[in-house]
Nucleic acid binder design. Structure first.
Lengths: 320, 320
DNA sequence: TTGTACGCGTTATCAT
DNA sequence: ATGATAACGCGTACAA
């Protein structure tokens, strides 16, 4: 924990000279500069972040806030964020809800990327600021200093359903996710709209409730098997539920895709293992782009539009 | 960004009185205290972290440092750490190598948990301190202020191999991991020792190189299928390689476990999906206990021993 | 019970 | 080219 003072003493100069050397200012003699740099090197001097930003009121630290430890793709998002930020000279700290609030309120950080549902819009609006812009993922917030980065669910779900229709499917089942989530709403809306556009009716009885967990997919499909007639294809709002559904169907001696086709959403690793037709969401890129948007806000070069991440279909053999 | 000064002015008291109120000291009149708290509440006052720790030299922020975004069980470790720390009033920040170094050098944080191989022992030794203890995971460092928390690979691998012997297996194959890693060394040593103890010979030709990736397991098993005689059981240093091996064996029309048994290590979710007999490592608990050890070091109540996390065998149907 | 003054590590301003 | 000093927000010893 060697500080600027000690360096100054050792070099026989004043602290301001050391500061000038460190910050690459030109008002320092060559000889002095070299001596100081030499000593910094030897002592492993690193500027103290808090002294620095206490004085300057600025920081290069960005907060990423999340709280759901169940979804492994969060690591990919973090990696994307981390890569962009480190390429651009920012430090990233990742925290969960309560700690995040600490770090978001002082001028400790220069911005935040928020993925935590528990972080409510009201709080975000109260801390967002020209000096502290925020990027929210998977949520839309109307605020000049908060930018939304969301996955383009609607378009790709339309594409998925249309492709199924083109393959000849007419009788659809659907397992939904948590109804309050934007992901659920957009995916289900796209599903309904595409059927309607093709004049295919969708009975409400073919809708099954789920909450994005494998268990809920399992339960939903078990209920489905009790009906007298299986749909031709079961569209699930995410992969976990699709896996649960496939397990339940197999237990009831139905085979996928011979007796019923199944689709998921997310392209999680488990979807690959089970060979589920799904939608691939570029998680790493989402994180990278969210970080990019945030940095642009900090630099004042961002536009106000919602940033939409596009996703791609991935055909596998869970569809006949 | 309201500060202690403004609160003081609004309450008509001095800054030190406000400070005393906030820190719960008793030398403040009841009436004054209530008025100050009232105003803090109204203004949403939050103490500035930098001013605070710049002055006091103490913080209850803990750094967790990692860099491998491929292993999804890292999220479980983080959750374990997060849970223990928040139960005990600490804030957690998670960062990768370069940022971590920043936060570990100032007195910004009160301790660190390190899981990042890129964070070398030399650096750790240079920052570890009575005021800044460190817990390292999966590594052994000899330093008074650095404590190791490692998985007890040896014992459980002995148990696994002994169980296989007890089931009648005599002819063993082994796919190893990265040879420089502690995990590899301990697991392989246990494997060899247990065979020797039972007077079972192990031919070096039955050892296959791997690097903990699925691909390396796939390649290793492909080479294995070219030999004129398969071992009865293939012990793999982790699950990923076991999965790769199983895929390769299936491609060569061998069935598991009928033609050859396979075991893994880690109990990753993919091992569950493939029904692989493996060793379950309590990741969440590892994180929780690492955090606990660190907090005890901070409080000066820790002992110096290496902390070993015990793991348990998990039988599934990849073994005959 | 309350206030004043100082110092934490840094940078910026101004003087030398 | 270099140095002295104030200021950032806070906590604390000590004075009142």
């Amino acid at each position: 924990m060697v500080g600027i003072k000690e360096i100054a003493k050792m070099a026989g100069v004043s602290v301001s000279t050391v500061s000038n050397v460190i910050n690459g200012r030109k008002n320092v003699g060559k000889e002095t500069r070299e001596r100081v740099l030499q000593i910094c090197e030897e002592m492993g001097y690193q500027p103290n972040l808090m002294g620095k930003s206490l004085k300057s009121g600025k920081t290069n630290t960005i907060v990423f806030n999340f709280s759901d430890f169940e979804r492994s793709f969060y690591l990919k998002i973090i990696k994307g964020i981390n890569d962009y930020l480190s390429e651009n000279g920012f430090d990233l700290i990742v925290c969960t809800t309560s700690s995040s609030k600490n770090f978001m309120r002082n001028n400790f950080a220069g911005g935040a990327i928020v993925l935590d549902k528990k972080m409510d819009n009201e709080f975000l609006a109260s801390v967002a600021d020209e000096q502290f812009p925020i990027v929210v993922m998977d949520r839309i917030v109307d605020n000049d200093y908060i930018k939304s980065v969301i996955v383009e669910n609607y378009t790709v779900m339309c594409e998925l359903v249309q492709s199924l229709i083109d393959k000849g499917f007419r009788d659809f089942g659907y397992i939904g996710g948590i109804e309050s989530s934007l992901d659920h709403q957009e995916r289900f809306q796209a599903f309904k709209d595409t059927l309607e556009k093709n004049n295919i009716s969708f009975q409400r009885t073919n809708y099954y409730f789920g909450d994005f967990t494998e268990e809920s997919g399992f339960r939903a499909a078990n209920i489905l098997t009790l009906s007298n007639k299986l749909p031709e294809v079961l569209v699930c709002a995410n992969d976990n539920m699709a896996v649960g559904a496939i397990k339940a169907l197999k237990e009831s001696n139905y085979s996928v895709p011979e007796d019923i086709s199944v689709t998921g959403f997310d392209d999680s690793s488990i979807a690959e293992t089970y060979g589920i037709t799904t939608v691939s969401i570029p998680r790493y890129e989402s994180g990278y782009l969210a970080a990019k948007e945030l940095v642009e806000m900090i630099r004042g070069t961002a536009n106000k539009d919602i940033f939409k991440i596009s996703a791609k279909m991935k055909w596998r053999n869970s569809v006949k």
